[in-house]
Amino acid sequence: MSFIRRLAGNAPPRILWSLGVLLALLLLAPALLGKYWLSVLILILYFAYVGQAWNILMGFAGQLSLGHALYAGLGGYIAAGLYFHYGIGPWAGLFAAVAVAGVAGAIVGYLGFRFSLAGVYFALLTIAFAEFTRVAFDHWGWAGGSGGLFLKVEHATDIVNLRGGPVLFYYLILALAAGAFILCRALLRSRLGQYWLAIREDAEAAQAVGVPVLRCKMIAIVISAALTSLAGVWNAFYYNNLFPETAFAMGRSIEITLAPIIGGLGTLFGPIVGAVVLTGLGEAFTDLGDVLRIPGIKQIFYGLALLVIVAYRPAGVWPWLADKLGLKERQP
């Protein structure tokens, strides 16, 4: 009980009630929703989760990564490869996945931060690492090369080996998204989280008041990479296949960044709101595209929507929405 009270902190009761109701609805969702809507909800939760993970590095610590597909891809490949080749189940495999992605994050971070690459330069470094790895995996036999890695599709639910249908994966991604939300909230209310915000705002001033800047940035990228790799593991076992062309693609990295940017960078609800908006738009435009039957029309609408959002809500949808709702997400 005291744990829950600490978790709630000073959040107003109104928000706590809404969150409670939302959580209850989400827990009941598989019973309430049809197959299609459940799959949409899964997508939303997936993007909310990876968005939350990316937001730690960019929204909190202020370091722009456009190569997060690297960590998701590594995570997916490690866990799937261990299962495929040696029958090591994903619950054990995810430790290896997290470790490898964490090390990858540490390498990218150390090289980038050590040589004080900032902004665009750091972003390009992250892209370069993801692309480099993509081509390497194209040629790596263990991972199936460019032909991809396939897991056997099984319909019987087997929690130990993460085999099963959408409902299993729904609850997994729900747990991940909820866990990431709670973790991020706790981080923001910790010294580390406050240090990240300070670094984001002005690294030199932060260092002058005793913030160990390099160490804090390193922790941010390692946590962010590790969380992202879990999404990769989930992804691999949900879709049962992995290709370097998609797993490490720049498009995948960009996808990861969109929900928090659209929703509101550095906020807790931003990635969630952004995921709802983006997935909703995506689905609506898919339907529209099916009606219009023009190749690319779905993406054209999507691009237009992004344009409108970035032009009119450059700080994201959530800060504006929160204002309208009379809520103000203040950090503690």
Binding site: R191, L197, E201
Partner: peptide
């Protein structure tokens, strides 16, 4: 060099956290 996007209180709290790691005390 203020931390522009943070509140005045947060600006000073970041400094205080150096000796007082607990947020409430800082």
């Amino acid at each position: 060099k203020p931390f522009k996007g943070l509140s005045v209180l947060e600006n000073v709290t970041v400094g205080a956290l150096h000796r007082k790691p607990r947020l409430a005390e800082a």
